[in-house]
Design a protein around this nucleic acid. Structure first.
Lengths: 136, 136
DNA sequence: TAGCAGTCTATTGAATAAGTAGACTTAATT
DNA sequence: AATTAAGTCTACTTATTCAATAGACTGCTA
């Protein structure tokens, strides 16, 4: 299961995808519409900005907006930016790999099974983009 | 990512699958071979027993063993018994479903994407059994 | 310069992970 | 019957991560 933080990030990105090209969107507007605790959302958006997927503008008329077209960011990229691993166990993670203490990857059945599921998941998440998160 | 508890449970079940038919296996033997903190493993195995996937024998010559042939338990079943959800978000979980507060499932793009990944994952995990966790 | 809105620091509470200690029950062996 | 092996159960303790909250600070626009 993805963490709440990641889930909130995806919801927020989906909302911003729907408003792409319309200028800055208030944190409070996103929080209200996507039912996200506003203070938690603040920290998430800030992090997304620091990772260059979002831009922001301060002061009156300010807010957050996508750095580039929603079609250019895949769900796999978005999840990795905040949530970390997509794989179910560390020894098959591309970006958060850790070696098992107890097994040989060449012969480990668990490794094989989890590798298959990771590939199946990635195949989907690398095809879908933020544009597909727009309602309707 | 699966919790440590779930990962340990899968490792232990794989070990017991390899010893199926050879009588009870000591907790300490599993812990040593699969590098699992023994006291943590105790609680995990006890839970698996209470869910009828394992049986145990007390006293000298005792230990844990699979209740039925490793081929009869799928990885999906095993994960659900200890780890909970396989889906990435609650609104597409079969066994741990929760409705989203902020969206209509019929039109939600995130829901659709996550439904696809859940199905792809399940297709694999429902085919693989504990027997496939045996090394070699 | 007033007020808006993002930024930053700090703290809190809950859940999970991991480890520890010790008493109890059951079963096999001597 | 006594001893010992092994699982069972209860109850802490500690560390870490997750989630949420509070409040002060900075920068922008009008």
């Amino acid at each position: 299961m993805l963490s709440k933080k990641t889930q909130y990030a995806l919801k927020a990105l989906g909302y911003l995808a729907g408003k792409f090209g319309e200028g800055p969107v208030l944190i409070s507007e996103i929080a209200k519409n996507k039912k996200i605790p506003i203070k938690f959302l603040e920290t998430i958006l800030l992090e997304l900005k620091q990772r260059n997927i979002l831009e922001s503008k301060k002061g009156k008329g300010g807010g957050y907006f996508l750095h580039q077209s929603p079609k250019k960011t895949t769900l796999a990229q978005a999840i990795r930016l905040v949530g970390g691993p997509i794989a179910l166990i560390p020894c098959v993670s591309l970006n958060f790999y850790e070696k098992c203490k107890d097994c040989n990857e060449a012969t480990c059945g668990l490794n094989k099974a989890m590798l298959l599921t990771r590939d199946a998941t990635l195949k989907i998440l690398e095809k879908k983009t933020l544009a597909e998160l727009i309602d309707g």
